[in-house]
Design a protein around this nucleic acid. Structure first.
Lengths: 344, 344
DNA sequence: TATCATTATGCACACGTGTGCAAGCAGGCT
DNA sequence: AGCCTGCTTGCACACGTGTGCATAATGATA
């Protein structure tokens, strides 16, 4: 059994309320007793019970984080950003992975409510409208990250996917490519649509045609599906000479798929990723991609949520806020000019 | 403000204790009232306060997990295994990353104690003896995973690193290699020592000499350090023809380092990893590695901890337990027989 | 009809912490 | 000496839930 303030009170011969005040450095208590009590508390290895405290203060100092999968390096980095910021402010993280399983999401939301989490950050696109409603009705502050239904929420951090996708596509156009395809992830909702939009806008601006079959979606974003995507494009009557991929995971698969089919990258095929996960620098050839500032995104999300929590006391109706961050094109070796032989 | 059992009591005209009992399906309460109360509870969207409950019952239904870094895919997968198992049993996870920062570890431990976590799983090697002592003194059940100082703890899950490293080394020997080097991570303590031991044992068994400079350590395990490691080995007067790497992250860097130096893998150099992280299947060439059952390791850790929690009530002194899991060699394309030209 | 067993419910306290208010105490002032 | 001020401390209740015990209500039995 852990020591409590009552134990300390007994030991020092004061009431438990005096101990409570002394530990919080309340000026009501004399310096002498405060010091004595804190000394004893240290000796007895006292640690306050978070449960009791949050019961009384109605603040748990815990933030809930919902991600779709922990072992996706993209989310890992966002979580990293969140954690750094939260830990600085004295908040801890309650992390749960939905694994794209609706029943699991249900449980997670319930748990977070039961834990009376001070706020929630959602980095998962797999919440349905009913779950959204439930969360909003409960009334705790929510910040969403790259979420498809962000208009339902008041506070969100966005990466400018349209802009990013335009940057990537423009890079390929400037290299001289005209037959450029897009490989999306049909499960990622709004995100893939934004990236598709950016691709389309840039193609249109340069009066480039998008041939039949050049826009293709696979149900997820692991490398194996990327291989499938590569097969699809290579089987077209007029295969593209460059493929804009939804993210790095897919791009890695496409890269492998092409190489298995004997297509040389980047000489015969240019491939771009999106996100700049750690491993994109270590593929062969290293991947040209869009460096999404993942840690900043996570940190911004946490910062926004913390601001929300602090302002909620004085200023009950904080105005909606939407922060957009832009990424940077990162040119590596998976893209190149067309060789003459391939231009035909 | 969330609804409480008192609200429900007022609404149904009974005392709060009756509500409390009805919600837990206590047979003391008549079936009729139980049903009525549960109905009202549902209507009012009642969710019990975890804080109040754990204050009263002394069980938080939360497990603490300490990892050294979240964005390391190896830990991500272990956490995944833990989460699956824990969620099934109704437990939630409190995850914190130490980032190899001792002061951060200090805070994490403190937080877990304050949260009165029911138990802790440690997947990080960066706890010093003082912190170990602190955790043990506090007295909550601890399960360590691949931890260097496991003998200080009573319950641990181990991957048999010595055996794994022997399997990898034997594979290279069987391919005909004789000049085999080992690249370790000096920060990983016991783990790198075990793998080194396995390598040495296998080399000795086949009467193979370990040349000067063939055992090399770098301070960490990211791909960039792997590149450094490759440089080291290639600069030796008699460079090795095969390199056993501490883990996949390093192996990926070594792979790139060799390729930058114009060395063909696997024709001129065989490289092996360890862990089998997702990306090791998508390097070029795909990495031969030791498939460590990461999810099983995580799940086993959670299972052991849960058993501990349940048995603690009846059986106060549960006997120490150490579970060892073995991994399997996974042969891909980063290893090959020596060509005649290179054998000289 | 009085007594008892059985069932259903409420009372009151507990968990550990925080806080408004009253009370005690010392010292300085008129 | 009496009063007021300022500083310290304790009392008592609150947060939301769980539980031992007493009590009330009902039905059965002698």
């Amino acid at each position: 059994m852990a020591t409590t303030i009552k134990d300390i009170a007994r030991r020092t011969g004061v009431s438990h309320s005096t101990v409570s005040r002394a530990l919080r450095n309340d000026p009501l208590i004399s310096v002498a007793t405060t010091r004595r009590i804190q000394q004893v508390a240290r000796e007895m290895a006292y640690l306050p019970s978070a449960a009791a405290r949050s019961l009384k203060t109605n603040r748990s100092l815990v933030l809930g984080v919902i991600v779709s999968s922990i072992d996706d390096p993209f989310f890992s980095e966002i979580v990293f950003g969140i954690e750094s910021c939260a830990q600085e402010a004295g908040y801890s993280l309650f992390i749960a992975a939905s694994q794209h399983d609706p029943s699991r999401v249900e449980k997670i939301i319930q748990t977070m409510m039961e834990q009376r989490t001070d706020g929630v950050i959602i980095c998962s696109s797999s919440l349905n409208s009913n779950q959204n409603r439930q969360l909003l009705e409960y009334g705790f502050p929510i910040v969403v990250v790259n979420h498809q239904a962000a208009e339902n929420f008041h506070y969100s951090i966005y990466h400018d996917d349209v802009d990013g996708s335009r940057q990537v596509t423009r890079h390929l156009v400037e290299l001289g490519h005209t037959r450029i395809a897009y490989l999306g992830n049909s499960l990622s909702g709004r995100t893939t649509l934004d990236r598709l939009t950016g691709y389309q806008a840039e193609m249109m601006e340069h009066h480039l045609q998008i041939l039949e079959g050049y826009i293709h979606h696979v149900p997820g974003s692991n490398p194996a599906l990327g291989v499938d995507g590569a097969m699809h494009f290579l089987a077209l009557p007029k295969p593209p000479t460059a493929i804009v991929c939804f993210n790095d995971m897919l791009a890695i698969g496409v890269l492998q798929g092409c190489q298995q089919a004997g297509i040389q990258v980047p000489q015969q095929m240019s491939i771009t990723g999106f996100d700049n996960i750690t491993f994109s620098a270590y593929t062969n050839p290293p991947l040209t991609t869009l460096d999404q500032p993942k840690r900043s995104i996570g940190a911004e999300a946490a910062r926004l949520l913390l601001t929300l929590l602090n302002s909620n006391q004085e200023n009950p109706s904080f105005q909606p806020q939407q922060i957009t961050l832009k990424g940077n094109l990162l040119v590596r070796q998976s893209t190149a000019q067309l060789t003459n032989r391939e231009k035909k």
